[in-house]
């Protein structure tokens, strides 16, 4: 059997701004996988959420360019501010299904205040948190999720700060859906994004993603493939784990807990707000 050398269209082209390709992401980067999983989740959810109601908001950085490639209404905000923009959108037009897709430096380091408050409000947003453990676009500096000891351009002898565990932080802040995958878990990620779309409240999905240029090559993952192999050997599906233990050391002998950690049906921001206003201030 011979395979064609070229295909005219990709099955998910309807959801990609193909005129913007080629994208700016490096070989070995995981963002392409996430674009693939995200667009597939949109297609899978077509029956319940019309594509025209899907919105993507990104911040700054490599992941921040996501908004420019996905072919739905999308906005590329300033650094760290994707969540406030998304909040304004969602409150102004409830029919929109608003997803925030951005990186760890953007969402947690500079934008951390917005992230924890959005989780506290249990506001109806889907956050896809692409964690590549460093600031890729500016050349590989450490951030709030960089593992302790990791080499970066601003921690040449090892990072002497400690990282956040994102699932633990988000759960404590009040997020009602919390999951974590790697870019190797494409099918699980796809399903998880679909679950987030249909979850009424604040959904948070951390996706650990290789960054060979910025992070990997300085930290024992010479290529993107090496980091994917690590994801394969270290990932441990642990839906019921104590989230205190949901770390991501990126060390060869440590486990990398993944799974759907929290699915809580507590009322969402919009539900509580509506009930409060209808009851003229009565608590629900």
């Amino acid at each position: 059997m011979t395979l064609p050398m070229f295909v005219e269209t990709h099955p998910r082209d309807e959801l990609v701004r193909t005129e913007r390709l080629p994208h700016i992401w490096c070989p070995g980067c995981g963002l392409g996988n996430i674009l693939s999983g995200f667009t597939q989740a949109i297609i899978n959810s077509k029956g319940t959420i019309p594509i025209d109601n899907q919105v993507v908001v990104s911040g700054i950085g490599c992941s921040g360019r996501f908004a420019g490639y996905v072919k739905v209404d999308s906005y590329h905000t300033t650094h760290g501010r994707a969540i406030p923009f998304a909040t304004g959108l969602k409150l102004a037009n409830k029919k929109l299904n608003v997803s925030v897709i951005s990186g760890d430096g953007d969402l947690m380091t500079i934008g951390g205040n917005h992230l924890i408050h959005a989780a506290r409000r249990n506001i109806n947003l889907n956050v896809i948190f692409v964690n590549n453990f460093n600031y890729g676009m500016t050349g590989g500096q450490f951030g709030a999720t960089t593992p302790h000891g990791a080499i970066t351009t601003t921690s040449a002898k090892g990072n002497y700060e400690h990282p956040f565990s994102m699932p633990y932080l988000m759960a404590s802040a009040g997020a009602s859906y919390v999951a974590r995958w790697t870019t190797l878990h494409l099918k699980q990620l796809e399903k998880s994004i679909e679950n987030a779309f249909h979850h009424d409240g604040f959904s948070f999905i951390e996706v650990m993603s290789p960054c060979p240029k910025g992070f990997g090559r300085k930290n024992n993952f010479k290529t993107g493939l090496d980091q994917m192999r690590y994801f394969e050997s270290a990932s441990l599906k642990s839906d019921n784990i104590n989230l205190k233990e949901a770390t991501a050391s990126m060390k060869l002998l440590d486990n990398l807990p993944v799974g759907e950690f929290i699915i809580d049906n507590k009322p969402s921001y919009l539900k509580v707000k509506e009930a409060t206003i209808l009851n003229n201030g009565g608590r629900t």
Binding site: V57, Y75, T77, T78, R81, I83, P84, F85, A86, T87, G88, L89, K90, L91, A92, N93, L96, N113, H114, H117
Partner: peptide
């Protein structure tokens, strides 16, 4: 956050 949410609202 206030000003950025205002921008988000305006885009609807």
């Amino acid at each position: 956050a206030s000003i950025t949410a205002v921008i988000g609202c305006s885009w609807t």
